[in-house]
Nucleic acid binder design. Structure first.
Lengths: 212, 212
DNA sequence: TCTATACTGTCAATTATTTAACAAACTTGT
DNA sequence: ACAAGTTTGTTAAATAATTGACAGTATAGA
């Protein structure tokens, strides 16, 4: 358990994008594709694609290229898209609702098992087939259902407290949309931060830089 | 115009995070901070922080460190947070609404000037003080108001078409939430892709990798 | 004022990532 | 079956990013 991945995060982060383009190709009826052509379509180098894929095995064939359907399936396996990682969302405001509604968890290796919020006006309502519960129910729910992953769609101010509580309830994996930096000093956690405002500010910088 | 940035994207992407931590420190009443302590708090190396900041100038002082308020202001300037880049949102579903409501554009160097959607049930309603207009009004609006940036919160299926139209209306900068890859073959565009499902799949991979 | 200590800016070394190059292996058409 | 043309997997080279080291300059306390 907890063996360190040999594959660099840079490579892993490209996998979903490969998967996306391969799905597109499959839908378009393509049987095979060379690293060269895929590189062209995706705006990468052929070398990088071959290098990336070879981290996981030799899926291609000289003189032929890659079988689209097969390669797509391989990446599906690598990403574990048919897993069912039990996941809860904390905070069901606009953002939480958008995430719950848009994400198609079942196609990404997750299953949404709980929604939690403090707003009495929305408790009891359903989003994506899951009922919104009070934060007071969180502890009991976690003990009974043992979710492993939490999606944080809560304001910065309460993030630290909620996060500590979730950790104490056995949750170690976080998809964090809150404006707060998780896991700086807790190396046991697995955290994917989505800092939207950071992304926006980066865009702003690049726009101004370009106009100089 | 269009001079290439000397500073690497890796560095630029860290700036908003520095800004965030410095704002926190300021709020806590801290006057000064050394690269060593900041590194500790942020989970980085002191060397990296000094290296990063020095891309933009020598903001620190030997034997003293960095003045929190001053450094924060400098980064604010670098990121251009008091600019007013005119921006529209295309697609005002859950996600578009979440983005419109949460982002505090004025504090990030942007100003939200228009909202567009095709759903007749929401056209005419206000979100964050801006009225939702029909997509039919887009052309006229762009000619009159010349927004430079668009935020795409639309499904993949219509993304390509909408995007082409926006480009023809003079928009070159995109904050793209749609499940579609912009700018592979258009180097003139400035694009920040936010592929949430890619992020989720990456998290999934890392969780499984860790459980091995 | 002087001395010990702290800390930056910068250059050098290390590590990571990307790109290039090519032999080996397959495909395709004759 | 053979020759010409493709395309991979893999090694090597090049580039980029991060970390380490330290001279120089400031601070702080006696």
């Amino acid at each position: 358990m907890a063996s360190k991945s040999q594959v660099s995060l840079s490579v892993v982060r490209r996998l979903p994008r490969y998967y996306r383009f391969l799905s597109e190709l499959k839908r378009a009826g393509r049987d095979r594709i060379s690293s060269r052509e895929l590189a062209k379509i995706m705006g990468l180098t052929a070398s990088q694609i071959r290098q990336d894929l070879n981290c996981f095995g030799g899926f291609g064939q000289q003189g032929y290229g890659y079988n689209v359907t097969l390669l797509r399936e391989q990446i599906e396996n690598i990403l574990g898209l048919d897993d069912k990682i039990s996941t809860i969302i904390i905070g069901v405001g606009n953002l939480g609702r958008a995430v719950a509604a848009h994400m198609d968890f079942e196609k990404r290796g997750f299953v949404l098992t709980g929604l939690f919020d403090n707003d009495v006006d929305i408790i009891g309502k359903f989003v994506s087939g899951v009922v919104i519960q009070s934060m007071d129910s969180l502890e009991k729910f976690c003990e009974e259902n043992k979710p492993t992953t939490a999606i944080l769609c809560i304001p910065k101010t309460v993030a630290k407290g909620v996060c500590d509580k979730l950790i104490s309830l056995g949750i170690k994996c976080f998809w964090n949309f809150s404006h707060y930096d998780l896991s700086v000093d807790n190396p046991d956690l697995i955290v994917e931060n989505v800092h939207l405002s950071d992304s926006l500010m980066t865009l702003g910088y690049r726009i101004k830089e370009n106009n100089k």
